[in-house]
Amino acid sequence: MSLLERLNQDMKIAMKNKERDNLSVIRMVKAAMQNEGYKLGRQELSDDEALTVLARELKQRKDSYKEFKSAGREDLAEKLESEIALIETYMPQQLTEEELESVVLETIKEESATSKAEMGKVMSAIMPKVKGKADGGRVNALVLKHLS
């Protein structure tokens, strides 16, 4: 089942069960996917493209969550926390620290990178491998650790 089909199915369930918060989040994610489709000039997004949109939506909410927490807005932070949890259910299983480190080391070896100056080359080779499975910040930190 594609990501869009899962979203549609869950949207119907949320409507039937009158889960307004879940319904709102699912609609926002679907709208973001639809907007991306318009930008690309297509009706349907591939699962990979849909995953990219989903990851972007998740990152935006995580950033906002940090801002609300630091500003002391617990009410808004709690709402975002539930949105983040819902969106994460649609994301692929995240890589463990060991799995991610193995991918990083393997890619550094493939790219024959030895210094921080080659970090961009390594990052651009790693990110497609871990798309949706690891946060870019985690990847960046590991690459930096192994290239220094």
Rank of each mutant, 00 (worst) to 15 (best):
Q94L: 10
R61A: 08
S24N: 06
E81Q: 08
S82I: 15
Q34D: 15
E78Q: 13
S24E: 14
D21N: 09
M11S: 12
E57A: 12
I126N: 02
E98L: 08
A71L: 13
M127K: 14
V130H: 03
G137N: 06
A141R: 12
D48S: 14
I108P: 08
I26F: 06
I26M: 06
R61E: 12
M1Y: 04
K12Y: 04
L54D: 02
M33P: 00
D10A: 12
K12I: 06
S148N: 14
E81L: 11
S124A: 10
S64N: 07
T52S: 07
M28F: 10
E49I: 00
L147A: 02
E57W: 00
I108D: 01
K129C: 05
D47T: 03
Y90P: 00
K62I: 14
E44V: 11
R73W: 08
Q60Y: 04
L23N: 04
L51A: 02
D135M: 03
V25W: 00
E19Q: 11
T96H: 02
E97V: 10
R27C: 07
D63R: 06
S102M: 09
K116R: 13
K131E: 11
R73E: 09
L147C: 03
Q34V: 06
S112F: 15
S112N: 13
Y65E: 09
A55S: 06
L4Q: 15
E49G: 03
S2M: 03
S70T: 14
L144C: 14
P92L: 10
V29N: 01
L76M: 11
E57Y: 00
L23I: 00
S148R: 08
N140P: 00
A125T: 05
T52L: 07
M123K: 05
A85C: 04
N22V: 12
I84A: 05
G132P: 04
L80I: 05
M127D: 01
M1K: 14
Q60V: 07
N22S: 13
G136M: 05
A125P: 12
